[in-house]
Design a protein around this nucleic acid. Structure first.
Lengths: 361, 361
DNA sequence: GCCGGTGCTGGAACCGTATCCCATTGTTTC
DNA sequence: GAAACAATGGGATACGGTTCCAGCACCGGC
């Protein structure tokens, strides 16, 4: 009873405890556990027995200090409850755990200061990559911030991945996984236009948000392509939430604006808009058609089911992680300007039941 | 140019690089950065200058090996896209980052094997606590599994927290944060009964899921209290998803079952049920009333807005983390049987627009 | 029977940081 | 003016692993 085992100890058992109790060297225990070196069967059995008895697990911190260790990716997200980015997170986490990687998660709450703090925190953790999710504000300063992040992480042997954000200009060591945001909006608006709608209430999102800008541009281009005048008075900016959808439509009805369809920047916004239309005594889609964007589960759970743009969020998450993994396997990855630094996934319209031709006046 | 700075180095800069370039000792740099030891202003400036130049951050692994380090909590969840548990995660992460703690996240996909693997992985990481989210199956084996987890984590200086799961029996070192599941179901069913409904289609969830059992029990108790016979043929088990809600109602209509209200085990199930009722030509709530459970955002986004049971998910997350934090501050925490090992939060009915008295036949 | 492999094991040197303990210097006190 | 003291810097060690290097035993070939 002279040796100190884990039985009465305050902390956890160490590899030294295992080695002592099994009567072998520390090096041997390490080899048995990592299994990357020939070890006799007899020794393996003895060590494993003690490992079981002591319920020993290796200290991940020590392991990664010494070289090995399981890679970890950091997922940084504005708001963890947003359905769209939850799906990206699912894609990342799924692909990560498939490889035995770990996922750290942090929320920024749209606060650049907090974003910086988190990126630094993750850098301390020595993560394989920092994956930033969600649209970004303020295009000018954004480029500078991100470029700094990218270089900083790169210098520390990590890597920056931008998902659903605009790519970085110039020779910056970062990967972008994007979707055809503007194309989706173009297709969605075209769908409304070809159904005969001419006056469409557009709720693209915050004017400063890059995704909102893209969606607005796509819609505008569709109007041009159809030769339909685009009325700026029918564009209402605001946050991507239910309340904004409701309030915007309520206000529009109050003002007596003339429109036969609503092009919402998000499925959640569309849900709010739909509710407000009903509250105003209008039927969907008989009186007013409505479309969303994102294709989150909510879209198919509304009544009527929402015609929307499908964005492959989960796939984006998987692609992001795959990019990190392959870059890590192929050494430091292809240098500047190679393909694979900017992946753009396709979007497409999902037709459900929320669009009809406008009523004859 | 003889010293090796971070400029051309492959890895990140170490504290030694900083010390060398600043011409001070390693110990001094450590003290400047941690700030828990008196240091002259001159030294501080010199060190900080180099830290800025080299963009140095401390290695978190080395730090936690040496004693310090930022605490980390692990959030283990069945499915990251479930709205309810996303809110718990938000509560945990928010409270964690408020204290400067980190949050690891892992998904189990309802697989016990994977759950075990993740708990061990987290134990390796030396997390302050492992927080397990979501209902559990198989009550018998569950107790054994969890007890083993609890002791194993406890021995390693960590701690097990169960959120929204049944508490552990006996003297097991674990904390449970729960909500009044059965009470909520009781209140919800009472609401329907007092509106005059007598024949209610009940969709409690999977028969083996503990939350489903609680909700079913609560409903049954309410029927007894009202002296209304409870018809087992009106109870349909199934998963907590939209499809089940839809299919169950569709099937019931096809069979010509007689009911005037639907008591869904979840808001999402209610959404599916609502859709199916509409598809069957029934109006909600004029022909059939419907209620949910959880009070996720979806509930107020449906038309009509859903009367449901509010579960304080985000608060549960905060409470869980607070329990871990306080236990860590007050040493090893109060031993066995003390209060605070099992917290039960209240639930309440949120009345919206999906319930009316049954139509006169 | 001796020598060069081959296969397995142990000792020791790291990984990057925090902190204990001791040395040095400047300041106060009698 | 000497001694006790506070303030601050540096050297060494510990944290718990991995891995290089050396050593030992055993093997077959000549």
């Amino acid at each position: 009873m002279s040796e100190r085992t884990a039985s009465g100890d305050s902390g956890r058992a160490t590899i030294r405890d295992v080695a002592a109790q099994a009567g072998v060297s520390v090096a041997s225990v390490s080899r048995v556990l990592s299994g990357n070196y020939p070890v006799s069967e007899e020794l393996r059995r003895r060590v494993m027995k003690v490992v079981q008895d002591l319920d020993y697990v290796t200290n991940a911190h020590a392991r990664s200090l010494a070289g090995g260790g399981t890679p970890t990716v950091a997922i940084l997200i504005n708001n963890i409850t947003g359905a769209a980015f939850t799906h990206v997170a699912k894609g990342v986490e799924g692909a990560a755990s498939l490889r035995g990687w770990l996922s750290l998660v942090g929320t920024t709450g749209d606060d650049p200061e907090r974003e910086l703090a988190l990126v630094n925190l993750m850098r301390q953790q020595g993560v394989a990559a920092v994956i930033l999710l969600g649209g970004a504000y303020d295009y000018d300063e954004y480029q500078l911030r991100m470029a700094r992040f990218a270089r900083s992480l790169d210098a520390a042997g990590s890597h920056l991945v931008l998902v659903g954000r605009p790519p970085l200009e110039g020779d910056v060591p970062a990967t972008t996984v994007d979707y055809d945001n503007e194309g989706g909006a173009y297709a969605m608006a075209s769908h409304l236009l070809s159904a005969g709608h001419r006056r469409v209430l557009v709720l693209p999102g915050h004017a400063e948000l890059t995704t909102a800008q893209g969606r607005l541009n796509g819609a505008r281009r569709a109007f041009e392509a159809y030769g339909v005048p685009f009325d700026p008075k029918l564009v209402l900016h605001g946050p991507y939430d239910y309340e904004h959808g409701y309030d915007a439509v309520e206000e529009s009805l109050r003002l007596g604006l003339d429109f036969t369809a609503v092009l919402a920047g998000t499925d959640v916004v569309a849900a709010g808009a739909m509710q407000a239309l009903r509250a105003g005594g209008l039927r969907v889609p008989e009186d007013v058609s409505i479309v969303g964007y994102d294709d989150i589960p909510l879209a198919s759970q509304l009544t009527p089911q929402l015609t929307t743009v499908h964005v492959p969020y989960e796939e984006m998450g998987r692609v992001a992680l795959r990019a990190v993994a392959s870059r890590r396997e192929t050494g430091t990855g292809r240098r500047k300007g190679g393909d694979g630094d900017h992946v753009v996934l396709g979007t497409h319209v999902v037709v459900r039941n929320s669009v009809q031709p406008p009523p004859v006046s």
